[in-house]
Simulated scan of single mutants.
Amino acid sequence: MSSSSLSGRITGAVKVGAIVGRPVAHSLSPVIHNAWIEAAGMDAAYVAFSPADEAAFETLVAGGRAGFVRGLNVTAPFKEQAFALADTTSETARISSSSNLLTFRDGRVHADSTDGLGLLGALEEQAPALSLNGAVVAMLGAGGAARAAAAALVGAGATVRVVNRTLERAEALAADLGAGVEAWSTGPAALEGAALIVNALSVQPDIDLGRLDPATVVMDMTYRPLVTPFLRAARARGLTTVDGLAMLIGQAGPSFAAIFDRPPPDFDVRPVCLKVLGEAG
């Protein structure tokens, strides 16, 4: 993108969106949204903010109320605070008690969560044979990423086992989400009968993939690297895998629509992301 094309597109009426997290420099969200903005020829920009602490994040939200930005995608560690600061919330955000999307209109803040849509879209794209209705899903981790994902999976008819080293955290998440979510300690028993295993941890899980049914689908929310050691080991076993980039792009579409009041253009951003990641696909 040249500086001349930017100067011709950005005006005083520019619409601004952003990704917020700590750290956030690694995020591909600006790459995705700005590629769509450029493809659509919009007078808009999507940037990144990394508040130093919760007080700084609250200041940023106040700036949104004041009209400085139209919407924020929110990542760790601010998702639960984002939910708490909103005036209104979607049902999806209420179920998970966290938000990855804040939009600002007329001084008010609305919280939503598109992470679950991203996960379901990634599964539909890369594991189309998987049926979630009546399926057992093992969710590895009980953090913010697991919350919205578990809620979406239950909504699709699955039973979700939240598998966490600290059982109390898994129990707290299960209690918050209610029916369809169970708390499990780590161990082989938690994976028995699972049609889908989702890694929502920031580290690679220690799992004996040889014990899994050959039809099991394995997903990793991480996209750096695109093919994580977990996914590479699953592919070596012949298992179907789903990568975190598909989920990221899947949640970005509804976020873009909410922030900029129009759907993203018909432009495939995955090749753009792969180029930035230095991945072949």
Rank of each mutant, 00 (worst) to 15 (best):
V31Q: 00
T88D: 12
T159H: 10
P188R: 11
R65C: 12
G178K: 06
P77K: 05
D87L: 06
M247F: 07
M1L: 12
G21F: 04
A127R: 07
S50T: 08
A62G: 15
V203A: 13
A146C: 05
P214V: 07
A76M: 05
A246H: 03
A200Q: 07
G116M: 01
Q126R: 11
R94Q: 10
E91V: 13
E171W: 02
F57Q: 02
H110C: 05
D43M: 01
L231K: 06
P225Q: 03
S90G: 12
R211I: 07
A44Q: 03
L101K: 07
S185M: 03
T75M: 11
A257G: 14
L6T: 15
L231V: 09
G63N: 01
T159E: 15
A93T: 08
P254K: 05
A200G: 09
A280N: 12
N73L: 02
R270Q: 09
T88R: 13
A39R: 08
G71W: 13
A195S: 11
K79M: 00
V162S: 11
G121F: 09
R224K: 12
K275V: 01
V276M: 09
V109M: 05
A127P: 13
V242E: 08
L201K: 04
G238N: 13
V181D: 05
E279L: 01
A52K: 05
A82V: 03
C273Q: 03
G144R: 00
N100M: 02
A45T: 05
A25G: 12
L60R: 06
S97I: 02
P265H: 14
V136N: 04
L177P: 01
Q251M: 12
P225Y: 03
T92R: 08
E168C: 14
R22Q: 13
R9P: 12
R232I: 00
A234H: 08
T92Q: 06
F49Q: 09
T222I: 12
V61M: 04
V14R: 02
A145G: 12
D43Q: 09
F230Y: 13
E80W: 01
G67T: 10
F256M: 00
M221D: 02
V14Q: 03
L201F: 06
N164H: 10
A66M: 11
A190C: 00
K15D: 08
P229F: 07
G17F: 11
V272D: 09
V24Q: 08
Q204N: 11
A236L: 14
G21D: 05
S131P: 01
L6S: 10
G180I: 08
I197S: 03
G118P: 04
A56Q: 09
E171F: 01
A86V: 10
A18P: 13
L130N: 02
A93F: 06
E54I: 11
W184K: 02
G116D: 00
R270E: 11
T228D: 03
T11W: 10
G144M: 01
G121D: 10
N34E: 08
A52N: 08
S202Y: 14
A48P: 01
A146S: 06
G178C: 00
A62Q: 14
L28C: 12
M42P: 02
G193Y: 04
D213E: 14
F230S: 15
T103V: 14
D112R: 08
A52G: 11
L167F: 10
V16A: 13
A82M: 00
D112N: 14
